[in-house]
């Protein structure tokens, strides 16, 4: 049986190249609540970085700032060389084609079938395809997540793990360069969570993506991330591989490994 230990990713420094996401001195507050305060991070091409933090520490706010769903108060976010905060709607759309976002709640459209859910981003981003090509792309992507048989089902007919896979397929359909995962294993049982972690690694290699994984699930992080950034008190508190951080004696870091 495959153990968690066996799925630990080796360091991948040799494949690391230029940065695809650069965040410098990011600040974001909601009223008096300072969520992000001087947060900085760099995600390089081919790298899988996990952002680890407690619930309410600002992980989801960070990922929504990266994709342009939230505007930061100050600081710089560059995605594929473009300053996200300064882009207009059309420019932001062009960046979003290259960035897949797996939502914590999956965010599948309840009123659409699985096929329509997958076709929606292609249609909306004006990807020019014949109906046959579009259908082939949908089926190929569904096969990659092992759910080709669900193509005409409604999201409500699927289990939690299947919905997560379909949501992942929807983000992959545009062949993104970067994947943003918001709590990918939250709400799933440990076995399904492990399957999703494995799938994330597989599709990452197949689609050659860089990934930013927001999570507090140590098993998922251990299985998928090359590097971990600890988001504590709104800033990057510690940065390193799983093993490096595990050896760290700082109480705030240590509590995640106990």
């Amino acid at each position: 049986m495959e153990t968690v230990q066996e799925t630990i990713r080796p360091p991948v420094h040799e494949k690391v190249q230029e940065p695809v996401i650069t965040i410098r001195h990011l600040y974001k507050s909601f009223g008096a609540n300072k969520v992000l305060a001087d947060f900085s991070l760099e995600l390089k091409k081919g790298e899988n970085v996990a952002v680890l933090g407690k619930s309410g520490s600002g992980k989801s706010v960070l990922i929504k700032c990266i994709i342009g769903l939230l505007k930061p108060d100050s600081g710089e976010i560059n995605v594929l060389g473009q300053p996200v905060a300064n882009l207009d709607h059309d420019e932001l759309d062009r960046i979003r084609v290259k960035v897949g976002f797996l939502f914590q709640s999956n965010a599948l459209y309840d009123s659409m079938t699985v096929r329509e859910n997958l076709e929606f981003p292609m249609r909306r981003h004006w990807i020019k395809m014949t109906p046959g090509e579009s259908s082939d792309r949908v089926m190929e992507t569904l096969k990659n997540v092992g759910l080709a048989h669900t193509v005409d089902m409604m999201p409500v007919e699927l289990s939690g793990g299947m919905r997560k896979r379909i949501a992942l397929a929807r983000t992959l359909i545009l062949n993104p360069d970067i994947m943003l995962y918001d709590e990918p294993t939250t709400g799933l049982d440990p076995i399904t969570g492990k399957e999703i972690s494995k799938l994330m690694m597989e599709v990452g290699e197949k689609y050659n993506t860089s990934s930013l994984i927001i999570s507090h699930d140590m098993n998922c992080i251990r299985a998928t991330a090359d590097r971990i950034v600890m988001l504590i008190d709104g800033k990057c508190y510690a940065d390193g591989s799983y093993e490096e951080l595990k050896r760290n004696n700082d109480p705030k870091v240590k509590q995640f490994f106990e």
């Binding site: 769903l69 979003r96 939502f103 965010a107 599948l108 459209y109 929606f120 909306r124």
Partner: peptide
């Protein structure tokens, strides 16, 4: 309301839709 709380509206925005 349901689309809002299940992040479907955010997903729509990410999918190039206003």
């Amino acid at each position: 309301g349901s689309m809002k709380v299940t992040e479907q509206i955010d997903a729509m925005e990410v999918s190039g839709t206003n």
